[in-house]
Design a protein around this nucleic acid. Structure first.
Lengths: 339, 339
DNA sequence: TTCTCCGTTTCAAACGTTTGAAATAAATCA
DNA sequence: TGATTTATTTCAAACGTTTGAAACGGAGAA
């Protein structure tokens, strides 16, 4: 049964001695086609394993039923989980998904964007790379009337665009508030790189939680680090060893940072380790393997982010009216306890 | 400069008042086209941001320059890393990549295969789902002369096909041998699910390393588990607590299993923990966060696996002669020390 | 002048599909 | 019987691209 050449409408038409249009319409259940004919066509199609050629279809209907995703890195569970939300929903509505990794490299991001443009995707969901300042490669999509959803990472300068972000302010507020309510008077905040807007949003959550609980702000309880281990270690030294009155709890920008911090403290046998509570953003799956997991995680619900992003995108694709104002969706964070 | 409608060859032709063919040939550097004309066409194309419509192209050349990847789960670093190798190479040769996750569900795998068939991919790289016994959905590709590379997971019954696998036997041999050379007389093997062929391949590596080092095989040093924590715990109980002469080293089927095991032992204050060495398959990135990392990891080099898979695939696509015999590539494992 | 040749451009078909309009055949009505 | 309706099928153009064949205009040769 080795066919070697793809089965087309033409072939079906020849076999059945009817026209190509009839075959096409039969398969698409046109009411004008005779029931018996439909039956014959469908049976033959099944028998020969006919699969419509997507390229021909796309060309004809001027729609690819494909959406593009650009994200920095699949190794990051945050993004991998977000794909889950996107893919599920997209496939359900007949859309395919092309995923591209930018590796936080602007050049790669531009290449991917051009590639997706060639593929005539119907819309784009993107978590921009760290150093994306120039948006020319993305404006191309807008010019063609193709919707873009920015998700996960906030395009720093207030670009007017559709956004789906996690409510990172709220996440940090919840964590800080929870720690205070648990009895902590000295809660520290370990922020991420200062260029990232989330660092500041989270800081606001931290501050507001302090205020709402009538706890005075203490600048010596705040430090920043990037994702480099050495950097984190010195920030921790600053927070825990420089002060005569060290924090009894810590909220960290990301669990990657938190775990480095905890490991450092434990390696240095920080004496009050057992009385100190730790919370970070992430809720990474391998926490289950840690001997001493942090007290809790701030779960950003990336699946839900992905789902919101794809839902908004499909809505925009469908209406095709570009005149809608820009949407901004905030996905709630929640606290997940580990102990 | 809002175009709203994609720029086509036709539009360029109109603007330049020349024929579509000339435009096409100019852009493709046909020698018969006048140099000045080429110049004009290319400039106009750049100015209007012309991007060729991939669907039209595919339809014409009967090739999609797209390859499909089906794998169980992007959350698994093993597969995520393998994509890295595939993507890099594929893009370099002008190929796009569509990734689908089967979630180890045969039905999803079949759906994905059909979807990829519609998309007229030029070839497929697949890590089959755990319960793929029936290969009808994949035979379709073979029937159309589209090459398939099975990678990462071994299609159990000796299907004649192209395979790219990690040399798991060798990895386990190396680890066991290393532990013995390090002075361990009692090395245990904690295998994975028995339905997985790798479990047995690794066991062979374990046995052969024992033999080559004149260490008698002791059945009480071998246990099996699936990826369930409780299951692992009882296997560990079996190995370490039932015997009056427990193992001093352990080789585990996967680090996910190993970490559960180590956590269990540590939680139960296993007294000889410090004198026991642990090695598992994986080399997961978050080992850096563990307070007490295992002695070493067996690195399966998934990037290299991906690279081998895509290289073989592209070779098969190019030659298009189906008569080549089936290839089987084995990727070396290596031991990576952590302490 | 007429023919040939060359460089360049255009024609036209093809890839596989959809779809409104036109054609056909059969059935109904007057 | 002839006209009209109805059910079904086919025609033909279109989507955007490629590409061998044909056409064109001018230059050089006979």
């Amino acid at each position: 049964m080795s066919t070697k050449t793809p089965v087309t409408l033409k072939l079906l038409a020849q076999k059945l001695k009817i026209s190509i249009s009839t075959v096409s319409k039969a398969l698409n259940d046109y009411p004008t086609i005779n029931a018996y004919t439909k039956e014959r066509v469908k049976q033959m199609a099944a028998e020969l394993h006919f699969t419509p050629n997507k390229s021909a279809l796309n060309l004809q209907i001027q729609k690819s039923y494909t959406i593009g995703i650009i994200l920095p890195d699949l190794m990051d569970h945050y993004f991998t989980r977000s794909i889950f939300g996107i893919e599920q929903h997209a496939r359900q509505y007949g859309y395919n998904v092309i995923i591209g990794q930018s590796y936080d490299d602007l050049k790669k991001e531009v290449d991917l964007a051009n590639m997706l443009l060639k593929s005539r995707i119907d819309g784009l969901i993107i978590a921009i790379s760290k150093n994306t300042q120039n948006f020319d490669h993305l404006d191309m999509f807008e010019n063609l009337g193709l919707p873009i959803i920015y998700y996960g990472r906030n395009p720093s300068f207030n670009l007017s665009c559709h956004k789906v972000l996690s409510n990172t302010y709220q996440g940090c507020y919840k964590a800080t508030d929870f720690l205070i309510k648990r009895g902590h008077q000295r809660v520290a905040y370990l922020g991420g790189p200062k260029m990232i807007s989330f660092t500041h949003d989270r800081f606001k959550g931290y501050i507001n939680a302090l205020n709402d609980n009538q706890i005075p702000f203490d600048a010596s309880l705040v430090a920043y680090t990037d994702f480099d281990k050495e950097n984190t270690n010195s920030a921790i030294k600053e927070l825990f060893y420089k002060s005569e009155n060290p924090p009894t709890a810590l909220v960290a920008f990301k669990e990657q940072i938190l775990f480095d911090a905890m490991k450092y403290l434990r390696a240095n046998h920080y004496e009050k380790m057992d009385q100190t509570d730790f919370i970070g953003f992430g809720n990474m799956p391998f926490i289950r393997y840690l001997d001493n997991p942090p007290l809790a995680s701030i779960e950003e619900n990336p699946e839900s982010m992905g789902e919101n992003a794809i839902k908004l995108l499909l809505k925009l694709i469908d209406q095709k009216t570009e005149a809608t104002e820009y949407q901004e969706v905030m996905v709630d964070c929640e606290l997940v306890l580990h102990s």
